[in-house]
Amino acid sequence: EELVKLQGERVRGLKQQKASAELIEEEVAKLLKLKAQL
């Protein structure tokens, strides 16, 4: 659960930094994978 929170914050940070869409999608995919494991 802690990992999900951390990953969510990372995604939010990337969006604020206007990171590339590919990078954000990659991180979102990791986030969804972590959530699925809960």
Rank of each mutant, 00 (worst) to 15 (best):
E1K: 07
E1I: 07
E1V: 01
E1Y: 00
E1C: 00
E1L: 01
E2G: 00
E2R: 01
E2A: 01
L3H: 04
L3A: 07
V4Q: 01
V4H: 02
V4K: 01
V4G: 05
V4W: 02
V4D: 10
V4E: 07
V4I: 10
K5F: 03
K5I: 03
K5A: 05
L6P: 06
L6I: 03
L6M: 13
L6V: 12
L6Q: 14
Q7T: 04
Q7E: 00
Q7W: 00
Q7G: 01
Q7S: 03
Q7V: 03
Q7F: 00
Q7Y: 01
G8C: 00
G8W: 02
G8L: 11
G8Y: 04
G8H: 03
G8R: 09
G8S: 12
G8V: 13
G8Q: 14
E9A: 06
E9L: 02
E9G: 04
E9Q: 03
R10D: 08
R10L: 10
V11P: 10
V11N: 04
V11L: 06
R12Y: 05
R12P: 09
R12K: 11
R12F: 06
R12A: 15
G13T: 14
G13I: 14
G13L: 14
G13C: 15
L14W: 02
L14Y: 02
L14C: 08
L14D: 05
L14I: 05
L14V: 09
L14Q: 06
L14F: 03
K15Y: 03
K15V: 08
Q16E: 13
Q16I: 05
Q16V: 09
Q16R: 08
Q17L: 05
Q17H: 02
K18Y: 04
K18Q: 12
K18I: 03
K18A: 11
K18V: 05
K18M: 12
A19L: 02
A19D: 04
A19Y: 01
A19I: 02
A19P: 07
S20N: 11
S20D: 11
S20A: 11
S20E: 12
S20T: 07
A21I: 08
A21T: 10
A21M: 13
A21C: 06
E22D: 11
E22H: 07
E22M: 09
L23R: 11
L23M: 15
L23S: 05
L23I: 14
L23H: 09
L23Y: 04
L23N: 09
L23T: 12
I24C: 04
I24L: 11
I24F: 12
I24W: 00
E25R: 09
E25H: 11
E25M: 06
E25V: 04
E25C: 04
E26G: 07
E26V: 08
E26F: 10
E26W: 01
E26R: 13
E26P: 10
E27Y: 00
E27C: 00
E27L: 00
E27D: 11
E27K: 01
E27Q: 05
V28P: 08
V28D: 14
V28Y: 11
V28F: 03
V28M: 12
V28H: 10
A29F: 00
A29T: 05
A29I: 01
A29H: 05
A29G: 08
A29D: 13
K30F: 01
K30C: 03
K30H: 05
K30M: 05
L31M: 04
L31C: 06
L31H: 07
L31G: 09
L31E: 15
L31Y: 06
L32C: 13
L32Q: 14
K33P: 09
K33Y: 04
K33C: 02
K33G: 07
K33M: 07
L34K: 08
L34Y: 08
L34R: 07
K35Y: 02
K35A: 15
K35H: 02
K35M: 15
K35E: 14
K35C: 15
Q37L: 07
Q37W: 01
L38S: 11
L38C: 13
L38V: 06
L38K: 14
L38T: 11
